[in-house]
Design a protein around this nucleic acid. Structure first.
Lengths: 154, 154
DNA sequence: CGTGAAAGATGCGGCAC
DNA sequence: GTGCCGCATCTTTCACG
């Protein structure tokens, strides 16, 4: 685990808020010269702490206005069934995140669909051909908060 | 809702995979001149489709190695209680996402903590002072997939 | 939509401390 | 480890076809 000082933390927080910051702007915000800042950045990238930058897209503006969390319980736990199911889920374009979880469910899927109609067709594709014990979708009625990690938690 | 052609979609997909792409590289990938590409980008930004770019940080490399989804049901639904609860949750640094959801729960919180011990102290802070009917945390045993929106779904 | 051009901003790296 | 400085490259904005 790499050792990070306060300046590294500050760098990461700034970049996780705005990945398009110029190195000069970034350097002045964290109180470094542009060059030192650049060297820290390359180090953080090599250490694998910074894993790249992505543009954020407004899904609702594209019609993908429903976010849904789908909890799934299955009766099958063989490697082969599991592998097939993963391949099936990954092939569904509406899927954003896919976790194997503990507790009284097996999988959690986060998906974005075009309204409830889009969810229904997604749901049909999801369960087709797979023997699932229970599937429940929770619709996001309101996104209260969505933010990058607060490294002050460390 | 803005109208997007195939080139816009391709632009958005490229940038959602790598927000640090230079405009030259981006232009050549989608088959445009660098100048046209720039004009489309500024349009997409003004339309609010592109909402900025963020660096992605490897949480596990910082010790935040446990991702947990917390489902919450409450007995209180007044505006005032709701406002206080939201303020309380937003103040917890471990919180990444916070949704109000439908179905048999009221809220869903996604959080990152330092192991199970970190989750326990997060849980204690979360419930302190609030009368919650039921709180259940689902640990992510494995992150199978995490990806930007697949605009081919449109 | 493409081309060409020009000004200013930026990244990267060498160098000295 | 830090800051200073310069060059090559890139972004951004024109005018024009």
């Amino acid at each position: 685990m790499p050792i990070l000082d306060r300046i590294d933390i500050a760098l990461l927080e700034e970049l996780s808020r705005d990945g398009a910051l110029s190195q000069r702007e970034l350097a002045s915000r964290v109180g470094l010269s542009q060059n030192s800042c650049w060297r820290r950045l390359t180090r953080l990238q090599q250490d694998g702490v910074l894993k790249g930058t992505r543009a954020e897209i407004d899904l609702a503006a594209l019609g993908l206005d429903l976010t849904v969390f789908v909890m799934i319980r299955t009766r099958h736990h063989s490697d082969e069934w599991s592998r097939k199911f993963r391949t099936h889920v990954e092939a569904l374009p509406q899927v954003l995140d896919f976790y194997r979880i503990g507790g009284d469910w097996d999988y959690l899927v986060k998906a974005a669909t075009q309204g409830v109609a889009g969810y229904d067709s997604f749901y049909q594709s999801l369960i087709r051909g797979f023997d699932l014990e229970r599937v429940t979708g929770y619709f996001a009625m309101e996104t209260i908060l969505r933010r990058p990690p607060q490294l002050s938690a460390l």
